[in-house]
């Protein structure tokens, strides 16, 4: 494990393969909550938190429950042969979405009990996050890229930062767009998409970074 590899994962997740502009994950909240700066920051903070947590938990579930290997808990508890461990990898989608839904519910309850002021500012965004495809997306990407535990955590955390960056930038632009003279058919969502397209062109510039 060396630090530069983690840095590469982080830079890639924030800039080069930004979840919004390059991977197209999490667009519904991106367009839904980018109308005001306050709500954009609140949503961004919740996403960073849940994404890091979800990366860690889904990684643990996949590596200790689903794959047929020596790390599997069935193997340890029942002392099975490696060949006899059930291969549950096909349950990945169902397991991950249930884990994420439970996790979000749990975080919501904990935040509500421990810090009512934080709950007031973040609470309304938490239920929305379950259906945010960026969360499930980062979990699946971690597994597909065969990342280890630390790499998964770093990718989850920095992907959240990249998402927040895109969200906050967009919110700043959309506040000004409200006052701009936009052709009538393009008002609202269409102009938001075109703006996002122009921002994506700017982010395309980061793909010139060679991360080796």
């Amino acid at each position: 494990m060396n630090f530069s590899e983690l840095l590469i994962i982080a830079l890639a997740a924030i800039f080069v393969q930004n979840f919004i502009f390059s991977r197209f994950l999490g667009l519904c909240p991106y367009l839904g909550v980018s109308k005001q700066l306050d709500s954009a920051i609140g949503m961004g903070a919740s996403v960073i938190f849940v994404m890091s947590l979800a990366s860690v938990v889904t990684w643990l579930v996949y590596n200790f429950l689903l794959i047929p290997a020596q790390s599997n808990l069935f193997y340890k508890i029942f002392n099975l042969d490696v060949e006899k461990i059930p291969d549950l990898r096909f349950l990945r989608t169902i397991a991950f979405i249930l884990v994420i839904a439970t996790l979000v519910q749990f975080v919501e309850m904990v935040v509500q009990k421990t810090s009512p002021s934080l709950y007031r500012s973040l609470g309304i965004y938490l239920p929305l996050i379950t259906t945010n495809c960026a969360i499930l997306g980062v979990s699946v990407l971690n597994i597909d890229s065969e990342y280890n535990f630390i790499e998964s955590l770093v990718q989850g955390f920095t992907a959240g930062i990249g998402f927040t960056l895109a969200l906050v930038l967009m919110a700043g632009i959309r506040i000004r767009l409200d006052m701009a003279e936009v052709p009538k058919p393009l008002k609202g969502l269409p102009i938001a998409f075109i703006t996002a397209g122009l921002m994506a062109i700017a982010f395309l510039g980061f793909s010139g970074l060679s991360l080796e």
Partner: peptide, 17 residues
Amino acid sequence: LPPGAFLSLGFLMGFLN
């Protein structure tokens, strides 16, 4: 490339409006 997707969808929505 990715930006083309945003631009196409934006203009298509605008066209329908």
